[in-house]
């Protein structure tokens, strides 16, 4: 089962690469955009029906929001490349990456809710001010956070490679070396350090993505608030986040499985101990460069 999944993941990654190199990304972007255009109309109709108290309107709107979140996530965005690159470069369990995908999308919805309700209730902000905050300042903050994560991952991988070079390949592979015979603790065990690192990374990944709320979510929240449909709007945005999560979690899981496949292969060739930090390095570099590039032109 797992083997089949891994092979599927490798095929998906290869297909995506061919697709991307073949210049077909514009088509996907175009498709996502024309779908968004269609959604703009459906959203307006859905909200109007809900406001008018039509039966079934709430379920329809929530369904629409899920689809909107999904389609939106298919277009270009920095959440996917961050999770994809991290998952491809690090020894992370698949389910944790899926969890990170889900949590970061939900937290992103939470940011939109906090921005709109905090902005309106506390700061008495206007709609343009809210949108400016989301579209410009938080977007930039998110990209800076992602670039810093990339830089940090590169530094960490570099340190690992350095250690490995100095200590020699026999000791270094940071695998699961347990000190069963020691009897007492000299300090945190290796797996404890890794677990700590894992949780810190998890928090950083979720945080960096969650900073920037989606504009569509802001629109829905502002309109439902003005319609007096507060909880319906908040739930709609969380459902929209689930739609987004379906895409980001898939990307993250695919990346992890593909990495496991590539690593299993390298293991047979006896290169795994070198491949790991090298992949971490590449993932960090990729994250750093993409974020810097988006920041530059943004």
């Amino acid at each position: 089962m797992r083997r089949a999944l891994i092979i599927t993941a490798l095929i998906i990654v290869l297909a995506a690469l061919v697709f991307w190199l073949g210049g077909s990304m514009e088509r996907v972007t175009l498709w996502a955009q024309s779908a968004q255009r269609g959604f703009q109309e459906q959203m307006a109709l859905g909200l109007r029906a809900l406001r008018a108290g039509e039966p079934g309107a709430l379920a329809t709107l929530w369904g629409l929001c899920f689809a909107y979140g999904f389609v939106h996530a298919v277009g270009p965005g920095h959440g996917k490349f961050l999770l994809g690159a991290y998952g491809a470069g690090h020894d992370v369990p698949v389910m944790r990456m899926v969890g990170i995908g889900l949590a970061s999308s939900l937290a992103q919805g939470g940011t939109a809710i906090a921005l709109v309700y905090g902005g309106v209730l506390v700061f008495n902000a206007s709609r343009e001010a809210l949108q400016l905050a989301g579209d410009v300042w938080l977007e930039r903050a998110s990209l800076i956070a992602i670039a810093l994560i990339g830089l940090w991952l590169v530094a960490r991988a570099a340190r690992k490679i350095l250690w490995q070079t100095m200590a020699g390949p026999a000791v270094a592979p940071a695998g699961h070396v347990h000190c069963d015979s020691c009897g007492h603790r000299h300090g945190p065990e290796l797996h404890e350090v890794q677990a700590l690192r894992g949780w810190r990374d998890t928090a950083l990944l979720i945080g960096a993505i969650a900073i920037r709320p989606c504009t569509g979510a802001l629109f829905v929240l502002i309109l439902t608030w003005r319609m007096g449909l507060v909880w319906q709007g908040i739930l709609a945005v969380l459902i929209m986040a689930l739609g987004t999560a379906a895409v980001t979690a898939s990307v993250a899981a695919t990346a992890v499985l593909a990495r496991e496949g590539a690593l299993g292969w390298a293991d047979r060739l006896g290169r795994a101990s070198w491949l790991m930090p090298a992949m971490e390095m590449l993932a960090g570099l990729f994250i750093l460069l993409v974020a810097l590039n988006m920041l530059k032109i943004f």
Binding site: S126, E128, E139
Partner: peptide, 30 residues
């Protein structure tokens, strides 16, 4: 929230934020 704003006003707002911070247009923004 019902402060008057026009589409062009809003575009200007977004745009002026870029100009103010010395950046060009949000090219990759959808």
């Amino acid at each position: 929230l019902s402060i008057c704003v026009t589409a062009s006003d809003m575009r200007r707002l977004i745009l002026s934020a870029f100009i103010a911070s010395g950046h060009s247009a949000p090219a990759l923004a959808h």
